[in-house]
Amino acid sequence: MSVKKAISLGVGIGVLFIIVLIIYGVTHTFNQTKREDHLVKGVDLSAYQGDIDWELLADQNIDFAFIKATEGDDYVDTKFKTNWEASQKTALKVGAYHFLNYDTTGKAQAQNFIANVPVSDQNLPPVVDLELYGIYEDNALPKEQVKVILDEFLKELEDHYGVKPIIYTTQRIFKMYIGTDYKDYQIWIVDLDNAWPETLPNGETFTFWQYSHRGMMDGYDGDETFIDMNLYNGTYAEFIEEFF
């Protein structure tokens, strides 16, 4: 090989190397920005979604998942243990939720949740699902009565897990039972009608927003075709800083 050819080849390799570095830098910067600043999307699910392929589910542009654990003082979701263990092997940030029952004490319900959900600082805080159901849809209990149950449940969980639970509820139930109380608790609000609910009815800011009950994803085979979709009110960097 002549000296001129060797020099030309060296210059060509050098230019190619620089181009590769530029492409890598741009790509790395883009991925870093996406990781830190993209909308933080997640799902919540239960036994209704059937058997779940957690690796497949996690690979569909979601960052977190809340899994139903318990209800009342004795019910445990039939898929909770399997879902919990499998979800821990993914990159998703995971939490568990309890559906609050109005027929038993908050303490008894907390004991049911505590008996089934491990303590871990690697997971999202526990969630209490506050809704109206069954006979209570048309005959809602007075706020004072619900408050006794809810307060007892929240205290037991906070004492056990060392963090304040998140309260999940609808706009209607928020107005009925939360109001200006519970300002120290993060709220996961259900609002299917607005493009982005800037604030809660009491003027506070929500933490999570359930924006759809009719999401469709790959990775589950239950009787329920749809899956609930949610967003965190902030960037991924803020999400990690807030919870981890």
Rank of each mutant, 00 (worst) to 15 (best):
residue 157 L to H: 01
residue 187 I to N: 04
residue 77 D to N: 12
residue 94 V to S: 14
residue 223 D to F: 12
residue 41 K to G: 05
residue 61 N to F: 03
residue 197 P to I: 08
residue 183 K to H: 08
residue 175 K to L: 05
residue 161 Y to V: 05
residue 74 D to A: 14
residue 136 Y to I: 02
residue 112 N to V: 02
residue 202 N to P: 13
residue 34 K to L: 10
residue 147 K to I: 04
residue 110 A to L: 12
residue 231 L to H: 13
residue 127 V to K: 02
residue 238 E to N: 09
residue 116 N to I: 00
residue 99 F to R: 07
residue 159 D to F: 09
residue 7 I to L: 14
residue 89 K to C: 12
residue 18 I to A: 12
residue 48 Y to T: 01
residue 203 G to P: 05
residue 237 A to Y: 06
residue 58 A to Q: 06
residue 91 A to D: 14
residue 59 D to S: 05
residue 216 M to K: 11
residue 130 L to Q: 06
residue 164 K to C: 00
residue 135 I to D: 13
residue 210 Q to R: 13
residue 67 I to E: 01
residue 136 Y to T: 07
residue 2 S to F: 07
residue 87 S to P: 03
residue 39 L to N: 06
residue 234 G to P: 06
residue 36 E to F: 09
residue 7 I to R: 14
residue 232 Y to D: 07
residue 111 Q to N: 15
residue 172 R to P: 02
residue 214 R to V: 10
residue 187 I to V: 11
residue 227 I to W: 00
residue 196 W to R: 05
residue 125 P to R: 04
residue 145 Q to A: 15
residue 173 I to F: 15
residue 195 A to F: 06
residue 92 L to V: 08
residue 194 N to D: 09
residue 104 T to Q: 10
residue 218 D to H: 12
residue 66 F to L: 13
residue 112 N to E: 08
residue 201 P to M: 12
residue 139 N to E: 05
residue 70 T to L: 04
residue 135 I to C: 01
residue 212 S to N: 11
residue 161 Y to D: 07
residue 108 A to D: 15
residue 191 D to R: 14
residue 15 V to F: 05
residue 90 T to P: 14
residue 22 I to V: 06
residue 166 I to P: 05
residue 42 G to P: 03
residue 116 N to E: 11
residue 39 L to C: 01
residue 129 D to I: 00
residue 189 I to K: 13
residue 174 F to L: 11
residue 150 L to M: 15
residue 69 A to M: 11
residue 26 V to H: 02
residue 10 G to L: 10
residue 159 D to C: 08
residue 152 E to A: 13
residue 208 F to A: 13
residue 76 V to W: 00
residue 221 D to P: 14
residue 188 W to H: 11
residue 147 K to T: 13
residue 231 L to D: 08
residue 140 A to H: 15
residue 19 I to S: 01
residue 85 E to C: 09
residue 41 K to C: 04
residue 130 L to D: 03
residue 16 L to S: 15
residue 180 T to S: 15
residue 25 G to R: 00
residue 117 V to W: 08
residue 126 P to E: 03
residue 108 A to R: 07
residue 76 V to K: 12
residue 195 A to L: 08
residue 106 G to Y: 01
residue 64 F to L: 12
residue 77 D to E: 07
residue 125 P to S: 04
residue 89 K to F: 14
residue 1 M to E: 11
residue 176 M to K: 15
residue 67 I to Y: 13
residue 66 F to R: 06
residue 121 D to K: 14
residue 105 T to R: 02
residue 177 Y to Q: 11
residue 127 V to T: 12
residue 227 I to T: 00
residue 242 E to Q: 09
residue 154 L to I: 00
residue 90 T to W: 02
residue 36 E to D: 13
residue 52 I to D: 02
residue 239 F to C: 07
residue 242 E to T: 12
residue 79 K to E: 05
residue 213 H to D: 03
residue 87 S to N: 09
residue 156 E to N: 04
residue 105 T to C: 03
residue 241 E to Q: 13
residue 148 V to R: 12
residue 56 L to C: 09
residue 68 K to A: 00
residue 98 H to Y: 15
residue 12 G to K: 15
residue 101 N to I: 06
residue 98 H to S: 09
residue 42 G to S: 07
residue 143 K to W: 05
residue 178 I to M: 06
residue 188 W to L: 10
residue 224 E to F: 04
residue 156 E to Y: 01
residue 34 K to Q: 08
residue 237 A to T: 08
residue 226 F to Q: 10
residue 206 F to C: 09
residue 11 V to W: 01
residue 89 K to S: 12
residue 225 T to E: 12
residue 211 Y to C: 10
residue 194 N to S: 15
residue 39 L to Y: 01
residue 97 Y to Q: 04
